[in-house]
Design a protein around this nucleic acid. Structure first.
Lengths: 410, 410
DNA sequence: CTAATTTGTTGAGAGCCCTGACAAATACCC
DNA sequence: GGGTATTTGTCAGGGCTCTCAACAAATTAG
């Protein structure tokens, strides 16, 4: 059973506020303070967030009762006065499960409330073209193993998310509308998942990668565009610290931005889409690597590209430069439209950043002229291809942090 | 003295919640219900928003005390039971002042709490290149006259916004960072405004036009891109019903999207910017209207273009088609990135929509292929060039609706 | 050991909403 | 016309959650 659903969005927006809402928000505020500045005493929290010690005391009691926070022994602070008792996020109890279905692998991980990964599993599987039910059954088995391992560490999974390389509509319902690289179309997870109590919620992998990047390295309320190349090119927009999915969940479809309107025809029917220059297939073709293996196993094409580029292989360098310039053009549009704090190259791009960043920066410098723009605002992701899985697991943790009442009361 | 500042943003986000916050939100919820569905009785409001009649009664009493709502006589509803007393927004008392400085005119208007324009003034003035102080002094005089006229109608201006064709940074402080078409650079309104008690808050005209469009015709929580051509080409993003200004206030700089990366050089230093195809200067040049008059007076170039196009003037039609196709390319990028519910052609584009919409729709149909996209999602604005001024005035009204405690208690 | 300082808890009080009851005002029915 | 049903608006009582003020507990400084 999953306690944490899609409810954590604070977009009630126009409903009336109740005392419970107030309590909920203040629980979240206190938990957030403990999460980002622990260890903290009750008095520290009160001083930091602007509540009284009495109120914080009551809120902390509830958080302890719900299993989100623990109280360490007194801290010998060295300062005068009675020492406070240190509060920290629990490293047992509530946890989030992340799952990932890639073209060539399955992944699963569990993070504790602090956001630390505690279990991490990955198995290679050629998932492209296989029946969705078969893939999902294997994912469910991996999930069950992972949860069991987490349970041995004292962790109780409170929510499950599945990262997929495809389109997930905004409405809840567990539908993967399309995942071209897997060959999926209109797959409803609940129809194939063996255990109805553990059906995960699907989400686009690029979106989750962006959130992971934000939770891992972002500044509060930051606005940025996270570009990640998997089989397609996906961008995800994080606006004021929240994922922006667009009106129908299609936001960030960077791969088909028209960078050269009269360029080569794309599979989508248009001409000169970014994917024709910076997509995996285009880069491999251009670099003379067509038809090779895929995936992150031995012979992983991304690793191979990086290897050849590092060795000075000219066609590879030329292909990456061409990709970088096209990406720079597309990102110019993104910067003009969205005015982000930063741009992040994630996924496979993170591993090729050494060769992509210079041409991207050059295009941006030449074309983003009517506003301040610092080259350093473009940076590679620290998480790279681990982002989506981590983001999937962290989503549950962040939902709990945003609304601790999702946890069962003690 | 201005009661309403920039405070109405509900982005406290991570502060603690108090009972006053709860009260504030519930006042806003009740006021919002009255605003969108009036006339409504207290019981109607209670049923609609999910509060009890007792609570609504108390909230309505306070709204009446603050002068936001009035109580009409009993409504002879025809239904059984004691008739409710109809509540409506007041058409006297609190009001918003909008001001506009254009390249060729000054504008001012006052709207009442219902959002109805009650005073509307416009004077032609060649403002380009004149000292900012001089222009602002005239604007202040116009504002004073307009407020006086409003006062005669029983309206009390609670907040003032100034629409400018330029860049306004995110931080409050009344700074217009740059307004190229006026020749302004780093103008701080407070330094030039005669009366320190009535200094307006500047905001970009395209942003205000988009908000006006949203408040006038938008669906709740709608996400759309509002494109408006004035002297430059500005887009404004309304995301889930809120204006998105970007990390530094530069979001929506559509004019310099690279639509043909190797196209003609632009004044900004890059090549093939949208402005080279769909900007006012480019269209006029292409249509053979170079050097003519500007503004909306007699010989208004936009009206002239529309006139010639309607008459079948071939160069004009060709210029508009070229502009439309370039705009379609830029909007393809916007749709791919933002996935809006709709696209709105505002400002001068609204008056040329007849000739622009077909080529824009054609490009979108050809290039937006990987997601559902209905041609009708592109529509002309109903407000056209009146949008920015209306948006400026409505902003204050909307802030009051979002937080009625901004009004002085009765 | 005493004074000063800081922490965490407790009880009183205020603000706000909910519950339930009641008077007021209307329509329906005889 | 009068009684009943129905709906509205208000009032009193109660619960929840915060603030304020006071206090015991635990530590450092002298």
């Amino acid at each position: 059973m999953t306690v944490v659903g899609r409810a954590a969005d604070r977009s009630a927006e126009h409903g009336p506020a109740s005392q419970q809402d107030m309590r909920r928000q203040n629980l979240a505020v206190v938990l957030g303070a403990v999460a980002t500045h622990s260890p903290l005493s009750r008095a520290d929290v009160a001083g930091r967030v602007g509540l009284t010690r009495a109120a914080v005391s009551s809120l902390v009691d509830e958080l302890i009762g719900r299993g989100a926070v623990t109280e360490a022994a007194a801290t010998a602070s060295g300062r005068v006065g009675r020492p406070g008792r240190a509060l920290t996020l629990r490293d047992e109890g509530p946890a989030g499960l992340g799952l990932e279905i890639g073209v060539t692998h399955l992944g699963a991980c569990v993070v504790d409330l602090r956001g630390e990964p505690r279990v991490w599993r990955r198995v290679e599987r050629a998932n492209a073209g296989r029946p969705a039910g078969q893939v999902l059954a294997e994912a469910a088995a991996l999930a069950a193993e992972t949860e069991a391992e987490a349970a041995a560490l004292g962790l109780r999974v409170e929510g499950r998310l599945l990262a997929v390389p495809g389109v997930v509509p905004n409405q809840p319902g567990g539908l993967v509308e399309r995942a071209p690289n897997l060959g999926w179309c209109g797959v409803r997870l609940a129809d194939h998942w063996p255990d109805p109590d553990t059906v995960p919620e699907p989400e686009n992998e690029a979106n989750l990668g962006a959130l992971a990047e934000y939770w891992n390295a972002g500044r509060p309320e930051e606005t940025f565009v996270h570009v990640s190349a998997g089989s397609g090119i996906g961008a995800a927009l994080v606006i004021d610290g929240r994922l922006f999915r667009g009106a129908r969940g299609f936001a960030g479809e960077l791969g088909h931005l028209p960078v050269h309107p009269d360029g080569p025809e794309c599979a989508c029917g248009a001409r000169g889409c970014l994917e024709q220059y910076a997509g995996e297939a285009a880069v491999r073709r251009e670099a003379g690597l067509a038809g090779g293996p895929t995936g992150t196993g031995p012979g992983d094409p991304v690793a191979l590209l990086a290897e050849r580029a590092a060795a000075g292989h000219v066609p590879t360098l030329r292909a990456l430069d061409r990709a970088g310039r096209a990406l720079g053009l597309a990102l110019t549009s993104a910067v003009d439209l969205v005015d982000p704090d930063s741009l992040v190259l994630g996924g496979a791009y993170a591993e090729l950043a050494e060769w992509l960043v210079p041409p991207v920066r050059a295009e941006l410098a030449a074309r983003v002229t009517v506003r301040p723009w610092a080259p350093e605002a473009l940076r590679p992701s620290a998480l790279g291809r681990r982002g989506p899985l981590l983001g999937a697991a962290l989503t549950t943790v962040r939902r709990i942090r945003a609304d601790p009442t999702l946890l069962p009361a003690g």
